[in-house]
Simulated assay, not measured.
Amino acid sequence: MFCFGEYTTQQFFTVFIGVIFSGEAAASFFTYTTSFTKSTTAANYVFWLRRLKPAVQEDPSKPPFDDEKDRGPAHVEVQDVAFAYESRPHAKVLQEIDVDVSDHLM
């Protein structure tokens, strides 16, 4: 049998479908390249944060104590909280919010 360098119908459609799907796969992959860059930057930022040393050292003689007998239930209460962004100081995002948080360990 002579070979003229032509595809059969089955070979043509096999190659055609392979080219179409590989092009779609490449397009899908390259849409995430910015996410890869952002994730690398975020991971490097986390590693940098973990290497930082605190500017203020904790004093073990001051509360909070690690002794369970000196530890009581925590209680935080905030009244009339208001918040506005610096760029729009007259547009209040939060206004007159009361928060009462209690920690009762049993």
Rank of each mutant, 00 (worst) to 15 (best):
Val46Cys: 10
Asp98Ile: 00
Arg88Leu: 12
Asp70Arg: 14
Tyr45Ala: 13
Val56Thr: 12
Ala43Glu: 09
Ala55Thr: 12
Asp66Trp: 04
Asp98Ala: 01
Ile97Phe: 01
Phe30Ile: 09
Leu49Gln: 15
Pro73Gly: 15
Ala25Lys: 05
Phe36Gln: 06
Val56Ser: 07
Lys62Val: 07
Trp48Phe: 12
Asp103Tyr: 07
Met1Gly: 14
Thr31Lys: 11
Phe29Ile: 09
Val46His: 11
His75Glu: 15
Phe4Gly: 05
Glu68Cys: 02
Val93Ser: 05
Ala91Gln: 11
His90Ala: 08
Tyr7Ile: 06
Val101Trp: 02
Thr33Cys: 02
Val15Ile: 14
Asp100Thr: 03
Tyr7Pro: 05
Ile97Lys: 01
Phe12Trp: 09
Met106Asn: 12
Gly18Ser: 10
Phe30Ala: 04
Pro60Ser: 02
Glu77Pro: 01
Arg50Phe: 09
Phe36Pro: 00
Thr31Asn: 07
Gln95Ala: 04
Phe36His: 06
Tyr7Arg: 14
Ser28Gln: 13
Arg88Met: 13
Glu77His: 08
Asp70Gln: 11
Ser87Arg: 15
Tyr32Cys: 03
Lys62Ile: 05
Thr9Val: 13
Glu96Ser: 13
His75Ala: 12
Ser87Leu: 13
Ala42Ile: 08
Ala91Gly: 03
Gln95Phe: 02
Glu24Ile: 13
Phe47Val: 12
Pro64Tyr: 00
Thr40Met: 05
Gln11Lys: 06
Tyr32Thr: 07
Pro89Arg: 08
Ala26Asp: 03
Arg50Asp: 12
Arg51Leu: 15
Thr9Ile: 13
Glu77Gln: 15
Lys69Tyr: 09
His75Cys: 04
Ile20Gln: 01
Asp80Cys: 05
Val99Ile: 15
Phe13Gln: 09
Ser28Val: 06
Phe12Met: 05
Ala43Cys: 05
Thr40Lys: 07
Gly5Pro: 02
Met1Arg: 12
Leu52Trp: 11
Lys69Pro: 01
Phe47His: 08
Glu58Phe: 08
Asp70Ser: 06
Asp80Arg: 14
Ala25Asn: 04
Thr37Pro: 02
Cys3Glu: 14
Ala84His: 07
Asp67His: 03
Phe4Asn: 08
Val19Ser: 01
Met106Phe: 10
Ile97Ser: 00
